[in-house]
Amino acid sequence: MTALHIPASQSTPSVTSSWEQGLLTMRGDSYPENSFEFFGDVIAWIERYLKESSAPLRLELHLVYMNTSSVKAMMDIFDILEDAHRGGRQVSVDWFYDPRNERVLDLADEFREDCSFPFQIAADG
């Protein structure tokens, strides 16, 4: 299974993926009851892509609210990308924020702190 598509729910963002384009997109709020289960699938897809493909990987994030366990899962994902990047893989993150909610800009900046791979933060528009 190389396709990962999860429709958005009340408490979880939508997830779409394209193995061919090396692109994973998440959009919405994230406060699932079981973050490990939800992000487990996302992490599994990323790890599998990094293992089986040698093409670049890009994450496109349009996340608004995240609970603490989602923040942790997201940090885990960025760690995986950081390891891949140090191992010579081409990975990148594009974080889009709602220009009406400038606070998310600071949050994304905080996430970016320890990442040495390309990590862009831009207003959604």
Partner: peptide, 17 residues
């Protein structure tokens, strides 16, 4: 360090809420 960062980010979300 990770825990620190997690708390910082989480606090920011909580404040905006």
């Amino acid at each position: 360090r990770r825990l620190d960062k997690l708390a910082r980010i989480s606090d920011r979300y909580q404040n905006s809420l």
